[in-house]
Amino acid sequence: MRPFFSKVFFCLSLAVLLSASQAHAHRYHFGLTELSVNERTQSLEIAHRFFVADVERALSLSAGKEMQDAQKQMELYVNQHFQMRSKAGEVITPKWVGVESDVHDVWIYQEIPLAKVQGESFMVRQSMLMEIERDQVNTLNLTRGGDTQTFTLKPGAGGAVVKF
């Protein structure tokens, strides 16, 4: 289900990144990654939702002053922090789909053909923002049919074994 949102895309110019201000009233750090099994398209859909301000800050810290291509940088960052490792140790890198945002949140999309993961167990790590916030809590939702299975990830425990 897709909430209405204005199509405003966040500024990733360097100036903005380096002076990103925090706009929430109090400090709390929360991210959501939805892994949805889409039988119709035979795809494992991955949608990460984070606060724009936090992601901007994380990118600015990881990019240094050389950052040119914002989307590439984002892709690099996400792939570094969101990983799926099979029992055999193989790391699956999901296909990059894209990024969108409104005034508050950024959505990052990736996907994996269902056949690649179906029936298998993976160690899924989602440690985005944990390098900058010690109280970051990332929630991992696996949605299949109408059922949701949830994993809570925190610094020090940024991964969970998920069976698809």
Binding site: R2, V8, S13, S36, A47, Q71, G98, W107, Y109, E111
Partner: peptide, 23 residues
């Protein structure tokens, strides 16, 4: 019901980088 990701893929024509510059 299309998923959020599917809807996103449907809107192919947009130029992300250009929109990002909006200030």
């Amino acid at each position: 019901i299309k998923s959020r990701l599917e809807l996103f893929k449907d809107e192919e024509s947009r130029n992300l980088m250009k929109d990002w510059e909006e200030e």
